[in-house]
Write a protein that binds this DNA or RNA. Structure first.
Lengths: 337, 337
DNA sequence: GTGAAAGCGCTAACAT
DNA sequence: ATGTTAGCGCTTTCAC
């Protein structure tokens, strides 16, 4: 069933059918109705490949998700998918491991799928203009930006929280309660990524309160997974280091940390406070509920798509949105014993 | 950069380039090498739309996810995405709400994207052959099948656990511990879907042990979300019904239920046992850890893709795989007080 | 082993 | 308001 068949069935030309299908105004109501009717009852759906071919661009927007094991992404992916659908575009998603190169994947996708735009979810923070030469469509970095790189701000868009600040706020909450020996649960401290940035905020908060950071209180899990978070916390406890609170760079790891502490006979928040950043809805159903700085995930997904569409439409060159985290009081922090 | 450009750059014809790109044997090694070299350094990537157009089918596999708020799907989506990538196909994902029609969406996608195959994640169980007329590519139902419908088993494939049996096993665990007043937390009891099936298993287990089901002990949440699970459990407790255990049809709802019980001053498992089905990795990090029947998500995702590829390749007409759930002992069940 | 040319289904000039 | 036609970039006969 092609456009030709429809044309023949209606006794009109293919261009007329094309006009109707593309909602052009210059078609008589009668013909339009007839065509629509025929389309309907023959279950005809235009061939997207043919369309993309002639328009030399498709209706596809690529989503490259890096380091997939972060549950925080699930919610955002959901929103992005919904918004892209709603805008009449098609979501083409690729998930890549944390050590794969998202730019390379994005560049290939762009050419293969004739993408109109790209959204990167979770990536490196140190792109250089050179390596982005291969990406020629608009793209937006969701939940991260290029603070370690040398990209011209005009050349890309982003939607982020202020990670360093959020970490500072979180740690300040602990300091305010009187904690001095505050441990930090990170993925890495020098991965030029979200983990490093939040780690910096942790250091900054400590220093500003005259607390000297202690390397022995830094637990590196190597990833964002609960499993690794659990293990790293266990090692921290077993190391014998003295601490009365933990700042975790992610909710998922914090939940694993609480479990680890519990398994070591330490009750949260009585024996140890735990605070994190992310604000998974899940964290409201753990016991104790997690005190955390919420990233507005729905908003972040929505803004990412909105910006991308705006840039694609030429309405703006680029846009960087910084969204606010919101403190969500849980029951996982308390003054030190 | 098109195939023509490459041809010109190499001083050969487009057909030769095409042959090289498609790994045809009838090209001289010298020319092949030259073409490959040119392709490489010009960053040329073939236009997928043009390819799909002439081959009248693309490299795309559609994934329709219905009722997206179920965290259980995230893991499976991850695996399916990985496997599809690995097989050299492209994942095109559409997420639809629980009350949308996945068959209609799938049919449209099939035509628009010239899909090679479809995977449905979470759908109705009562398809009729008529309504599937529009789907002409192979498809597999992941985590559900057509037990309420009238589909010919030959006409589709599926990967599922035995939901009713799993529910029975879960409830049996509670009965074995001596529980008699067992509540059930479901989405709906008559939605001809996974919830109804597991509810049936619950009824069956009770009856087989001579326990008369009590309608007052059925908490309908209306969805699979934690929020609704929490609310439904709250209502159950507030109704004043007497029960010593809860069987939840999903892990997520069970976690919410545990939280609700806790908020009502009931400790799990001391005052009330909780068991579920799903086996989210998350459930190993809650306190208490959840006792649950694990669905082998990775395997389910892998098998879904494998079956689809096999059917697409004509190696088999259809295949129905029933995977085993695995009991994972947690700390959420105990004998009644 | 290689090239020329037809055509996949569609859109967008250009005619009428 | 509607029809005719030239490609979009690629694969695939069919010649040579």
């Amino acid at each position: 069933m092609t456009i030709k068949d429809i044309a023949r069935l209606c006794g009109v030309s293919v261009s007329t059918v094309s006009r109707v299908l593309n909602e052009r105004p210059d078609v008589s109501p009668a013909v339009r109705e007839a065509v629509l009717e025929t389309v309907r009852k023959s279950n005809y759906v235009p061939n997207n490949s043919a369309r993309s071919l002639v328009k030399t661009s498709s209706d596809a927007i690529g989503l490259v998700v890096r380091g997939v094991s972060n549950p925080f992404y699930s919610e955002i992916i959901k929103v992005i998918g919904r918004e892209i659908d709603a805008a009449g575009y098609t979501l083409v998603m690729q998930q890549i491991s944390a050590n794969a190169d998202e730019i390379e994947r994005g560049a290939i996708m762009e050419r293969e799928k004739k993408l109109r735009g790209l959204i990167f979810l979770g990536g490196r923070w140190d792109y250089s203009p050179e390596e982005l030469g291969l990406i020629t469509v608009p793209f937006v970095c969701c939940s991260y930006n290029n603070s370690f790189g040398s990209l011209d701000r005009e050349s890309y868009s982003s939607v982020t929280i202020e990670d360093e600040l959020a970490a500072e706020r979180a740690v300040n909450e602990l300091l305010r309660l009187g904690h001095k020996r505050i441990a930090c649960l990170v993925a890495e401290t020098d991965d030029r990524s979200i983990s490093e940035l939040r780690y910096r905020g942790y250091l900054k908060a400590l220093r500003e309160h005259g607390v000297e950071p202690d390397g022995a209180l830094v637990a590196r899990s190597g990833s964002f997974s609960m499993e690794d978070g659990y293990r790293a916390t266990m090692e921290l406890v077993e190391s014998g280091s003295d601490f009365s609170a933990i700042f975790s760079i992610s909710d998922a790891m914090a939940i694993a940390a609480i479990k680890a502490l519990d398994d070591c006979g330490r009750s949260v928040p009585r024996d140890c406070s735990v605070i994190a950043i992310d604000g998974l809805s899940l964290s409201e159903y753990t016991r104790p509920t997690l005190t955390t700085l919420c990233q507005p995930m729905a908003r972040m997904g929505e803004e990412s798509v909105k910006i991308l569409l705006d840039v694609m439409n030429g309405w703006t060159k680029s846009r960087h949105i910084v969204v606010e985290t919101q403190f969500r009081a849980g029951a996982s922090i308390a003054p030190p014993a």
